[in-house]
Design a protein around this nucleic acid. Structure first.
Length: 677
DNA sequence: CAAACAATAT
DNA sequence: AATATTGTTT
């Protein structure tokens, strides 16, 4: 009988629950860009009596999975795929739906296998796959189910996936166990601290000091999930610990990680802000910001931010225009950066309060709040800003306003604090309603995005590894920040605006190379979960009114490196000039597919400009250079106009900026950035 | 006192 | 750089 028949027999049982005759009818999603391989795989899986669904596109797979998480029991995916790196898919799946994923590849390179496992694959099969291997894949489903049950009684130890145990070193279990002895107690106190003294502690393994916790991807995932569940506000060590329900993990461990996580979030925010500000300051260049942050994505990957930078630069310079920029601009940039860095950040308090406010009352309509909030901001900030601006002579204050505007706009949108929601499933109806058709909506997304974007975008570049990346994110930030300076310098350089623009345009365009060259990361789709959390955290933690929306844009991002290049072309062609951002955004939401191209753009933009933000008002823009800039810029610009919200003062932005700067400074990010140029 | 947090140590 | 530990506050 055919699979279909089997399915039918199983009758309703499909939903995942019935495992009556389990392996039979197991719902498998097979993904492989090679139609032949896919067909073959499909055939084999069917022979195993699994209920098979196939797709040749990773993105499609992700889409299907997102649409109905309970529709599949297991995913088997090729590693090499044009639209999305298999590892990326793996990570996203693991993160978002936590389904067992089996990687498939003709390459049996240990490193690749390892990579697959590290990214959460429950198995790695080498092509050609034998049916014998496929006959046993169901075990992964069982295993996962067993572990998953979130029964969280902390008591059990063993089966939980997370229990902390094992000798410290190993760590390889993808799942990530932490502590050394299985038994560990949560409290370190109990252990025997004292005993050892003598030297005789000999110990039972139990007794030893516990190994330090390694925050594996899985563990981090759990952590993030817990945080997300709790909401930032309530995300305190103890609660997180409870939710995580990982044996052996202590509150202290969580606290420590939380500390780091918060720092990370802040950083991200800062960066974003910074970028946004920068952009604004610069003159409002807009960049498209689609890129995004995907939430997770960035965790660790970026190992060396440097290379990206490098690549970007080089491509840049090669472009010709760049060269000039570099030289002249470089200097200016540097100055700029330096000066900015120095500035103290005052407004933090303010911003914090704002955030808090927002957090607390997410539901509250934004507009009023925002307005009030902003207004509330002390003038002092302004002063600071001024000072700042002075120091960084190049940046005109006026421009800074732009940023502010964005911010406001975002807030106005009244998006829920959690961008995630929006982001979440593009396919799904926008929840907030906020985004309705209205143009206001349209606007919103962008603006908000712009904020987030910076940061997010960086993530895109990163290599895959969602989880991995968060740690890297910082690096990303660096990268971005660096890029920024470039831009600035660019701008700053006293070139006539037009020329500048042109240059900018070039940059953006040229970047294609960059993109392709640098093997940036795999595409990113966001993983919402993380993103969400992240965002929420960020917003909460950080300051500012960041807006939530970034999410959606971000989601889309995929950068396809493979896809293409055409960035310019696509852009121009696909996106009509007239098309406003709104349309864009809509389309984006609706189809992920489109994104790919767009994403490229964004990436490029980012890379080149550093900031992809969207930007706002055109008004400030001195004018658009018409035709030349066109593709990218226009695209961007248009929307900008729509954007709207203006707020008279840019306090926020300033504040943010300052904060960001300060932070950066602390982080040394800026410095670095400056350096490269 | 326990928990959270920030700072500091390894 | 990632965790752990310590110190302070709530």
């Amino acid at each position: 009988m055919t699979v279909e028949e089997i399915r039918g027999n199983m009758s309703g049982g499909e939903r995942g629950n019935n495992y009556d005759n389990f392996p039979i009818g197991m719902r498998v999603l097979a993904v492989d860009d090679d139609p032949i391989c896919l067909k073959l795989l499909d055939g084999l899986l069917r022979k195993c009596q699994y209920q098979v669904t196939t797709t040749s596109q990773a993105r499609m797979a992700l889409k299907m999975l997102r649409e109905n998480r309970d529709r599949f029991d297991l995913v088997i995916s090729d590693v090499h795929m044009p639209d999305m790196d298999g590892f990326k898919l793996l990570e996203l799946v693991g993160l978002e739906m936590d389904l067992p994923v089996i990687m498939l590849s003709a390459n049996s390179d240990t490193k690749l296998v390892r990579k697959g496992i590290d990214h959460g694959a429950c198995d790695y099969l080498v092509k050609p796959v034998r049916i014998e291997e496929l006959r046993n894949i169901w075990q992964h489903v069982i295993r996962k189910k067993k572990v998953e049950p979130k029964s969280q009684s902390k008591s059990n130890d063993q089966d939980k996936s997370y229990q902390v145990s094992g000798e410290s070193g190993r760590g390889q279990s993808p799942t990530g166990n932490v502590y050394p002895n299985g038994k560990c107690n949560k409290k370190r106190k109990d252990e025997e601290d004292e005993n050892d003294e003598n030297g005789n502690d000999n110990e039972d393994p139990t007794t030893q000091k516990r190994a330090r916790v390694v925050w594996s991807i899985e563990l981090h995932r759990k952590f993030v999930a817990a945080v997300g569940q709790l909401g930032i506000e309530k995300a305190v060590p103890k609660r997180i610990l409870d939710l995580m329900n990982v044996d052996g993990l202590t509150r202290e461990n969580v606290a420590s990680h939380l500390q780091k996580y918060r720092l990370y979030l802040k950083r991200i925010n800062s960066v974003q802000t910074q970028q946004a500000n920068m952009v604004a300051a610069l003159g409002g260049r807009d960049y498209v910001r689609m890129g995004s942050l995907d939430g997770l994505g960035d965790f660790r990957t970026l190992g060396g931010s440097g290379r990206y930078t490098h690549a970007a630069l080089s491509s840049y310079s090669s472009g010709g225009m760049l060269g000039r920029l570099n030289s002249a601009a470089g200097l200016s940039v540097r100055n700029l950066a330096a000066s900015q860095l120095l500035q103290p950040s005052h407004g933090q308090n303010l911003s914090n309060s704002v955030n808090a406010f927002t957090k607390l009352n997410p539901s509250i309509p934004p507009a009023s709040q925002n307005a009030s909030l902003f207004q509330g901001i002390p003038a002092s900030l302004e002063l600071d800003q001024l000072q700042q601006s002075k120091s960084s002579a190049h940046i005109p204050l006026d421009e800074s306003r732009l940023l502010t505007t964005d911010v406001l706009g975002c807030s106005n949108n009244s998006l829920p604090n959690n961008p995630m929601l929006l982001q979440g499933n593009p396919q799904q109806p926008l929840t907030g309603g906020g985004f309705g058709n209205q143009h206001s909506q349209n606007i919103t997304p962008f603006s908000s995005d712009s904020f987030n974007t910076g940061v997010n975008g960086s993530s895109n570049f990163l290599e895959h590894g969602r989880c991995n990346d968060w740690q890297n994110s910082v690096q990303l930030s660096k990268f971005q920040s660096n890029s920024f300076p470039l831009t600035e310098s660019f701008i700053n350089s006293h070139l006539p605006q037009n020329s500048v623009r042109e240059a900018a345009a070039h940059l953006q365009n040229s970047p294609l190379d960059f993109t392709s060259t640098t093997s940036v990361s795999p595409p990113f789709e966001d993983s919402r979960g993380e993103i969400q959390y992240r965002q929420s955290m960020a917003s909460a933690v950080q300051s500012m009114n960041q807006t939530p929306s970034q999410a959606w844009a971000d989601n889309k991002q995929q950068y396809s490196h493979n896809s293409n290049n055409t960035f310019g072309n696509n852009l121009s062609s696909q996106v009509p000039n007239d098309g406003s951002m709104a349309s864009l955004s809509h389309s984006m939401n609706q189809n992920n597919e489109n994104f790919g191209r767009r994403m490229d753009m964004s990436l490029i933009g980012r890379s080149s400009g550093g900031s992809s933000t969207l930007v706002q008002h055109t008004e400030h823009e001195k004018l658009t250079p018409d035709s030349r800039t066109r593709s990218n810029e226009e695209y961007l610009l248009e929307p900008t106009k729509q954007q709207v919200g203006f707020s008279p003062q840019g306090y926020d932005s300033l504040d943010d900026l300052m904060t960001a700067m300060k932070r950066e400074q602390d982080g040394g990010m800026l410095d670095e950035g400056t350096i490269w140029i």
